[in-house]
Amino acid sequence: MDIAHFGVEEWLNKWEKKATYDISQSSIEALTLEELIGLDGTTVADFFENLSKESLDYGWIEGSDEFKSLVASLYKHVEPNTILQTNDATGANFLVLYALIEPGDHVVSMLPTYQPLYDIPLSLGAAVDFVELKEKDHWQLDLDALQSKLTAKTKMICLNSANNPTGTLLDIPTLKAIVEMARKVDAYILIDEVYAPLTGKGEFMSIVDLYEKDIATNSLSKTYSLPGVRIGWTASSKEIADIFRKYRDYTMICGGVLSDELAVHALKSKDKIIERNRKIIKENLFILNQWVEKEPLVSLVPPNYVSTAFIKLDISQEDEAFCIDLLEETGVLLVPGTAFDFPRYARLGYCCKQETLTKALELLSGFLRKFDK
Rank of each mutant, 00 (worst) to 15 (best):
L12Y: 07
F340Y: 15
T308S: 13
I3Q: 07
D40L: 02
L159Y: 06
E320F: 11
K53V: 01
I172Y: 05
S24G: 11
G91Q: 02
Y114A: 09
G59M: 01
G337V: 06
N87R: 07
G256R: 05
G7I: 10
D209K: 06
R248D: 10
T82A: 12
R347L: 15
F342T: 15
L122E: 15
L333G: 04
W139P: 00
D372S: 15
D137L: 12
P197E: 12
V107D: 11
T86L: 00
P296Q: 04
T166C: 03
T20Q: 14
V78K: 04
A92N: 03
F310V: 13
V71W: 09
L300M: 13
T20R: 14
Y211I: 04
I189R: 11
A263S: 09
C254W: 06
G202Y: 08
L74K: 13
P121F: 10
D249T: 09
V264A: 05
K294H: 13
T32F: 02
P165S: 00
T151M: 04
Q85K: 05
Q85E: 08
V335E: 12
F371H: 08
V71E: 11
N304I: 05
G41C: 00
C254K: 03
L36C: 07
N218S: 14
T43Q: 02
S225R: 12
D260Q: 00
E66M: 06
Q115R: 14
F244V: 09
I311Q: 03
I172D: 07
L175T: 01
A266M: 02
N218I: 10
N284D: 09
M110Q: 15
G255D: 09
K246L: 14
A4N: 12
D325W: 06
L262E: 00
V332F: 01
L111S: 14
R278S: 15
E180N: 14
Y305R: 13
P303H: 10
I231T: 14
N163K: 08
D209E: 06
S26G: 15
V96Y: 12
I23S: 03
L175V: 03
D319H: 06
D341V: 10
N87F: 02
C323T: 04
P121C: 06
V229L: 04
V108F: 04
P227E: 11
D325P: 05
F322Q: 08
S219Q: 05
R276L: 02
K149P: 08
T166W: 07
E135F: 01
A99V: 02
Q290I: 03
L51Q: 10
N304D: 14
D119M: 11
